[in-house]
């Protein structure tokens, strides 16, 4: 199966492929590297290595509370989108009903509407609601959670639907044939079979929520900022090793979540 490659063209082509990959990865690698530099101002080469920027980042009220809020939001958004998305996926993957395509399109819509537009609309909607009822949503946790759940729903529906469709319909029929009621068949056969899809959905939902910037932009309030907004605000005035440490931590967390998703189902299959 050894395939011949033409000499110069082949070398150039391989080199360009790796150069492009390096271009994508290099900045991320560099910022992780910089996070360990001892230099108090970002500069090259490093004068030594230290971990104190991580401690300083954690000591910063903005980063710490932003981080905690983002983690909470990510977990809550993933959980709620699972609650809303799994039944919807079952309807789409297993049943035929008028309007099925329309509902699928609608559930995917948060992916297509630009983040900044959706965020603006939600912000305006919240304020209009507040004007009408006096109940405040914008700037508090509920408002953010709704926005982040909205972001997670299309991913959950898409992943769980795909997982359901990959389940061989005949194994469910086999269970029913052996005497399992539809509910028991779902619990004993379908659920274990789609577990990887559920894991991937939770991981992806968490990541999508965690890194969201545009939708949250309108909805954060004083003292209630997500990590991404905190990073944005910080970067407008500073670029120092502390922010590099924050970036390094984020890269590590997201990397782990995505690797978990990849172990569950091939990551490249789901993006």
């Amino acid at each position: 199966m050894e395939r011949q490659r033409p000499r110069i063209g082949g070398v150039l082509y391989r080199a360009s492929a790796y150069a492009v990959l390096a271009f994508v990865l290099a900045p991320l690698a560099v910022i992780v590297w910089v996070a360990f530099f001892a230099n108090p101002i970002i500069g090259f080469p490093p004068t030594g290595y230290t971990l104190r920027w991580f401690a300083r980042a954690w000591a910063s009220e903005d980063f710490r509370s932003g981080f905690l809020l983002s983690v909470q939001l990510g977990i809550a958004a993933a959980a709620i989108s699972l609650l809303l998305g799994v039944p919807a996926s079952i309807a789409i993957a297993r049943h035929d009903f008028p309007g099925r395509e329309a509902i699928n399109t609608l559930l995917m819509a948060p992916l297509v509407v630009p983040g900044i537009v959706g965020g603006a609309a939600l912000f305006i909607g919240y304020l209009a609601f507040e004007l009408a009822t006096g109940i405040q949503i914008a700037g508090n946790l509920a408002g953010l959670l709704i926005a982040h759940t909205l972001l997670a729903i299309p991913w959950t529906v898409r992943l769980v639907t795909a997982a359901l469709l990959r389940v061989d319909a005949s194994i469910i029929e086999a269970a029913v044939n052996l005497g399992a009621s539809p509910f028991v068949a779902f619990r004993r056969v379908t659920l274990p079979a789609i577990r990887p899809g559920l894991v991937a959905a939770v991981m992806l939902s968490f990541v999508i929520s965690f890194i969201d910037l545009e939708k949250s932009l309108f909805l954060v309030g004083p003292g209630r900022t997500t990590l991404q907004i905190a990073i944005m605000n910080y970067l407008e005035w500073n670029l120092d090793p502390t922010i590099a440490a924050v970036a390094a931590v984020q890269i590590a967390i997201i990397g782990l979540a995505l690797l978990a998703a990849d172990r569950a189902v091939g990551l490249t299959r789901i993006i």
Binding site: L28, I31, I211, Q228, I231, L235, A244, V246, Q250, I254
Partner: peptide, 10 residues
């Protein structure tokens, strides 16, 4: 999926 804020920082 590394986040646009972090990538901009990079």
């Amino acid at each position: 999926l590394m986040g646009n804020a972090v990538r901009s920082a990079a």
